[in-house]
Amino acid sequence: MDITFKDVSYIYQPNTPFEHRALSNLSFHIRSGSFVAVIGHTGSGKSTLLQHLNGLLRPTAGEVDIGSYKISAEGKTKDIKSLREKAGVVFQYPEHQLFEETVEKDIGFGPLNFHVEQEEIKRRTQEAIEAVNLPEELLQRSPFDLSGGQMRRVAIAGVLAMEPEVLVLDEPTAGLDPRGQREIMDMFSALHKEKKLTTVLVTHSMEDALRYADHIIILKDGRKHMEGPPLEVLVRKEELEQVQLDVPEVIQFLSGVEEKLGYSISYHNQDIAQLAKELVAMVKGGR
């Protein structure tokens, strides 16, 4: 589903001493099927933005279009429930939201609320648990007996069981060890392609943004600071420094190569092995 923000502003507690403008005249367009990374430091408006994507918040001014759904200050709420069926949000530390007696019931809780048939819930639960790489034996266990990494997978399976078309991920790898981080991100990347999802990833990791996203939006004080394809946005050192972000490490290294050795090797998503080959060719004077 296409996602469009048109001059969206959001103000918390308007007309009170605590009034706080979290988003200011924010406009952007996310094409259906793209993988977007939203980056910005604490307080830049990332969380406020993502809560608009399934109607948890409605803009104070402006309009959010998600597929055929329109969310604005004046709009009615009647469509919001069906929007929530289409747009799934994986919040930070989603395992804190587990509550059911068994893994199976927890995964099926969302679809049950939307009156999905039992048979269909079973099928979806099965599919979801496979997608997150959990063994079927876990279905009858209590989610609270599982390890942290497994609990997170259960929580994610619960969102997948809704079969969303838009998947919103709020720092989904926080607190995991390196292998856990890579597995979870590779899983989302595979799902994104396989299910033709529109994925919105909120992250601090420039490396993940570079590796997985095809479009980048960087926020600063509730406004759009930068936007574009990763290889155009993530190389602009000065602008990134204004929002306390670093250029991804591989790009930093390549500019080091250029400065010190005078060769320019362009980054085009090559993996480290390929990069090594290009460097060897350079050192041996083959280019």
């Binding site: 604490t42 607190g175 601090h204 420039m206 306390q244 670093d246």
Partner: peptide, 8 residues
Amino acid sequence: TAMLDPKG
């Protein structure tokens, strides 16, 4: 420092 951004 896990919950902080890179500069933090």
